[in-house]
């Protein structure tokens, strides 16, 4: 299995350049914001209890960008929805800043794959929604909402309704709306999954910019390996049936990230490794074919 990367003379994904290693070491010194301990999710079916997640544990550090990937059915969306308390926890515990979570709250902002702007409110009022709940005066809420719209580059659109915006713009407003609450963590459940490839690339760049600009921890669900490698510090790989942690992969790609790095050896070797983790049962020859094709064309 490993002779394919060798053929292409790729380094191991475990080799980290000094700057990358320093950065990751520093990250791991940061306090833990999210602690997931032995998380279990079961639900009853006609054949009996089905276990979706089995003893999933991992930590997310302050300022970290962590992606969670895995084959379909591995429960990656369930994990993030349990963090937001949109799903009940069967067993285990999720700690945010040391306290276990039990109900949804503004400290865990979320961006969904579906467009979830409130269609009866203007862009501005959407961003103000959480600010007003937190008890801010209308004046303060408006001022802060405009600042956040400025950060996502949509200030001129403040008075429009969601139906007047493109999908990418709606997701940027959704990000601004979640960030306006100053959450401890931003949970993103395949936020760009419904966008076309070009818009998605733009949104990835926007998200990296925002993440570098402000002090925020992000947990990001995706099934797009390029996206996971391009955006993340670390990638948590889950396996399916039941969902378990397979590996926590540190991304050896240096910062700041740019689309040029898609073809760099460390990017490719990481992506190949992730691919192998997600599809371990696939035929080797098939893997080889896929890998060579990806390496040759530079797309996945």
């Amino acid at each position: 299995m490993m002779d394919v990367p060798n053929k292409l003379n790729l380094p191991s994904y475990k080799e980290q350049a000094p700057d990358v290693k320093a950065r990751l070491d520093e990250l791991k010194q940061q306090p833990v914001v999210i602690e997931v301990e032995k998380l279990v999710k079961e639900f009853p079916t006609e054949e009996g209890v089905r276990r979706i997640l089995d003893q999933v544990s991992f930590n997310v550090h302050k300022r970290e960008f962590m992606s969670i990937i895995g084959p379909s059915g591995c429960g990656k969306s369930t994990v993030i929805r349990m963090m937001a308390c949109l799903e009940d926890i069967t067993d285990g515990v999720i700690l945010v800043d040391g306290s276990p979570v039990s109900e949804p709250g503004a400290d865990r902002g979320m961006v969904f794959q579906k467009y979830t702007l409130f269609p009866w409110l203007t862009v501005m009022k959407n961003v103000m929604f959480g600010l007003e709940i937190s008890g801010k005066s209308k004046f303060d809420a408006e001022r802060e909402a405009l600042q956040w719209l400025d950060i996502v580059g949509l200030e001129p659109y403040a008075d429009l309704y969601p139906a007047q915006l493109s999908g990418g713009m709606q997701q940027r407003v959704a990000i601004a709306r979640a960030l306006a609450n100053k959450p401890k963590v931003l949970l993103m459940d395949e936020p760009f999954g419904a966008l076309d490839a070009q818009t998605r690339a733009k949104m990835q760049a926007y998200l990296l910019q925002i993440w570098e600009k402000i002090d925020i921890t992000i947990i990001f669900i995706t099934h797009d390996l390029d996206e996971a490698v391009y955006l993340s510090d670390r990638v948590l790989v889950l396996e399916a049936n039941p969902g378990r942690v397979r590996e926590l992969v540190e991304i050896p790609v240096s910062h700041p990230r740019s689309p040029d790095q898609f073809l760099s050896p460390e990017f490719l070797t990481t992506k190949i490794h992730l691919e192998e983790l997600i599809h371990p049962s696939a035929e080797e020859s098939q893997d080889e074919f896929e890998v060579v094709k990806m390496a040759a064309t530079g797309v996945g």
Binding site: P104, A106, F112, T116, W120, G130, I133, L187
Partner: peptide, 25 residues
Amino acid sequence: FSLVEAAQTLGAKPGRLLFKVVIPS
């Protein structure tokens, strides 16, 4: 229901969910 979930992650409690999300929606 995804609008309700979005509102919950923005800190909305049941009363506000009913009057500011479900009914307007």
